[in-house]
Design a protein around this nucleic acid. Structure first.
Lengths: 204, 204
DNA sequence: CCGCCCGTATGACATCTGTCATCCGGCAGT
DNA sequence: ACTGCCGGATGACAGATGTCATACGGGCGG
């Protein structure tokens, strides 16, 4: 016991990543032994370094921190997972938990909570902002079906129905139907609002 | 001369802000003497602390780092300005320079460049990513008129023409005209794409 | 086995959006 | 004084979008 806690840090923005590493480096009992900038490099790096805790940003190229968490949880269940994100979206919290995360932190929480969380998850605790947890429970589950989500995601960039139909191998009418039901489920008036709301809730 | 360089750090996400402070704290010659989380607190903090360099994130509540830079430049022209941002949007670079910034850094640049930039601006140099500078020059100036930008910004959340007309005290037809010309200037096919492109270029 | 939801599709309809021509008053350059 | 651009507006039109009813096959829970 109690040599240092070995941490893998995954975050795409170098400056932020190295700054977080500097922050954790100030702690006597924590050592950042690996850094990656892409979600799809997490698992390999974890295998290569024998780590105790993985600190994962959600928004990353390659794959999201949540997907990375899920894979890591399957392949190396002993590794504790701390998910870190810019956006406190309740849906994110929900999916992070389903992926096996032990802690969920938003980046506008005080920096001290980071090292705190690392130590706590290693001790077997879970770390979740209670406000966010309440919000996640209050808003209920994602009402969108898989297809509705796919279409909405594809529609986010302003693609037209015809383009969506082509891209998703659907008829144009079907695309409209999915968007229509999504719009109704989200209680908004057009696809743009639907995309916005779904994003805010972390349902996209 | 040459005691330490006194830095003000403005960034809304506590964890990132304190991590950057930790990073700069590792440098012998740099000292973070003040931290703020809002753009509209920058000027007051600068007055209170007699700083050499202000390090400003763009995306902040209160006001943007660019607006804060402009005010600081007017009130305390001796303070050097480093603008830091997540998004390498050419339009941001342009407006940052117009606001009097001495350096423009994107957060996915290596962390070492941060301290580097602080030292260089103090020495009277300017620090700009050459790739970004080229992009900013290549894309030309913002082609949108004030009103077009306003309408586009207001349309970003999915508001309908009628809502936009009400909000901006315009006729519905005028709203459509502005959106139409914006769409044509940006060479896209609908308002959603127009918003996306304008955002990407930093023209919004 | 029956109902229910999902994925997919069609057709009809109403409304919203985008385009275009045209107009006005004001202001800046030449 | 003339020209051109901007802000603002109207009307007409085509095409995109949103709604609704309806249909069919597959799967899953009761």
């Amino acid at each position: 016991m109690s040599s240092t806690i070995k941490v893998l840090l995954a975050e795409d923005q170098s400056m932020v990543r190295e700054a977080l590493a500097a922050l954790l480096g100030l702690e006597e009992d924590i050592e950042v032994v690996a850094q990656v900038a892409r979600g799809d490099e997490v698992v390999a790096a974890a295998h290569a370094h024998d780590i105790d805790v993985a600190l994962l940003d959600i928004e990353m190229p390659g794959c999201t921190g949540i997907e990375a968490a899920a894979r890591l949880h399957r392949e190396l269940p002993a590794v504790k997972l701390v998910v870190l994100t810019t956006f406190g979206r309740p849906g994110y919290l929900r999916s992070a938990m389903e992926a096996g995360a032990d802690a969920f932190l938003v980046k506008d929480a005080p920096a001290a909570q980071l090292a705190e969380a690392v130590r706590k998850v290693l001790a077997g605790d879970r770390v979740i902002d209670p406000t966010l947890a309440a919000a996640a429970l209050a808003e209920g589950a994602n009402p969108l079906t898989d297809r509705e989500r796919e279409v909405l995601r594809a529609a986010a960039d302003g693609s037209t129905n015809a383009e969506l139909a082509r891209a998703l191998h659907l008829s144009q009418g079907t695309v409209r139907n999915y968007l229509s039901t999504a719009i109704q489920k989200l209680a908004v008036r057009n696809r743009t609002e639907a995309v916005r709301i779904a994003r805010e809730k972390g349902w996209l």
